[in-house]
């Protein structure tokens, strides 16, 4: 394996980190700084340090990655050996988008069931007819547990429960 190959997605992510720090640093300039008291620090210091941390680490990692030095991941290699599967990732992502949209309109039970089923599909569920009743029961049980026994409110939506 050629470890010296330039990993462009990794370069992009590191530059994204630096950019995030930069955006934050600009926004920090909006904070008014009262210069009162012995506390010479004010509300800008800590966010600025954090933003600088992101900018510096992002830039250094980015330059290294550009040169082809990507340090090995901390995680167990088993996960990494498998290739990235864009299709399943996008399905899982769509599940989140759908859940966020449905939660407000149709309520938790519908949104939760959709989220459950779409996620299961993204993870390779091949028996939707077997999974659907499980999803419905699971979501119903969660809903009842939270609303009836724990006294927490969940968006009810269109299901009259």
């Amino acid at each position: 394996m050629d470890a010296r190959r330039r990993d462009l997605p990794y370069v992009a992510v590191t530059l994204g980190i630096a950019l995030l720090g930069l955006v934050a640093l600009l926004e920090i300039q909006q904070i008014p700084t009262p210069t009162l008291g012995y506390d010479r620090t004010g509300p800008r210091l800590f966010p600025s340090l954090a933003a600088l941390g992101l900018i510096l680490t992002g830039l250094i990692l980015g330059i290294r990655a550009w040169r082809g030095e990507v340090p090995e991941p901390d995680e167990d290699e088993a996960d990494w050996a498998r290739p990235f599967d864009a299709r399943d990732f996008i399905i899982a992502l769509l599940g989140l988008v759908a859940a966020a949209a449905l939660l407000r309109t149709t309520g938790f039970i519908v949104a939760g069931t959709v989220l459950f089923m779409v996620t299961a599909t993204a993870l390779g569920d091949r028996r939707p007819l077997f999974s659907l009743p499980i999803a419905v029961l699971f979501v119903l049980a969660t809903y009842l547990l939270f609303t009836r026994f724990l006294g927490l409110n969940l968006p009810r939506g269109i299901v009259p429960l």
């Binding site: 939760g112 459950f116 996620t119 699971f138 939270f146």
Partner: peptide
């Protein structure tokens, strides 16, 4: 698939 479906439902409930 069912395990992670359930995890996301619980994550949503817990956060909300």
């Amino acid at each position: 698939p069912l395990l992670y479906g359930g995890i996301l439902v619980l994550a949503t409930v817990g956060t909300y």
